[in-house]
Write a protein that binds this DNA or RNA. Structure first.
Lengths: 129, 129
DNA sequence: CAAGCGACTTGCGTTTTGCAAGCGACGAAA
DNA sequence: TTTCGTCGCTTGCAAAACGCAAGTCGCTTG
């Protein structure tokens, strides 16, 4: 008899079945996790707020990352106005569950990189699935 | 009087003083953390072993990442033979301390990405500072 | 002594990044 | 009521990074 999940297909477009590799296929770049940080830790929701972060993400990259994050199911876009169309972005449960990853990164940085400072403004994010 | 660390300079070449941003400046790409994984979890040490990982890292990228990791102080290169020169790579404490980051990523992937499988071969890494 | 191997380097075409500028719909100011 | 400014993007383009293939160097092995 077959086991349940015996031949679970390797995730589409992924490089391997390794958990780490699959995470990196989604958030493995210099910008994506900063958007997640803005949403999860700094309580930001709007395009302009993301742009105002100190890292100064290029606007075309921001637009691209928001699209990818939405496509990956980590965030949701909700219009709060129709004309002109204006949206807010919210983390899904899947996206918010990256919290421990950010937490681990933060601890590592505090321990190993001199000069980093923990952001004062820590706002609990609203989650919308 | 001045406080200790009052004006700690923002880390060189970094985009901000944010811990997350500083981590991403070092490991924010699709490949770097995979070589850390190879060293830390899979017990690999040599160039050829890294190449044999299922993600099939391009050889020039591997060479580049090893250089960067060494420059960042996350790994050490040690020759075990002079002619022809052959080296093994070891994590430093700084590099090995990324363990919790990988751990958090792994847990997230297992929860949210169907089809990932936890690698069976988990070897404790040797650390050399 | 030809072939192979490990650990890279080099070339080169493709993709991604990053900077700047533009744009459409408004709201506020002059 | 033109003009200005803002917000949330899109577009163009040059520069950098990526990724594939091939080459190199110094042994080692048949």
């Amino acid at each position: 008899m077959k086991k349940a999940k015996a031949n679970a297909a390797p995730p589409e477009g992924s490089r391997s079945t390794c958990p780490i590799a699959n995470v990196l296929d989604i958030v493995g770049d210099k910008w994506t996790l900063l958007v997640v940080r803005d949403l999860l830790i700094l309580g930001k929701r709007r395009y302009g707020e993301f742009q105002n972060s100190p890292e100064a993400i290029p606007t075309n990259i921001l637009a691209d990352r928001l699209k990818r994050l939405e496509a990956a199911g980590l965030i949701r876009k909700e219009l709060y106005q129709d004309n002109p169309p204006r949206a807010e972005y919210f983390l899904t449960r899947k996206g918010a569950d990256l919290g421990p990853v950010l937490e681990a990164m933060g601890q590592w940085a505090v321990r190993h990189i001199p000069g980093v400072v923990i952001p004062e403004q820590i706002v609990p994010a609203e989650i919308r699935d």
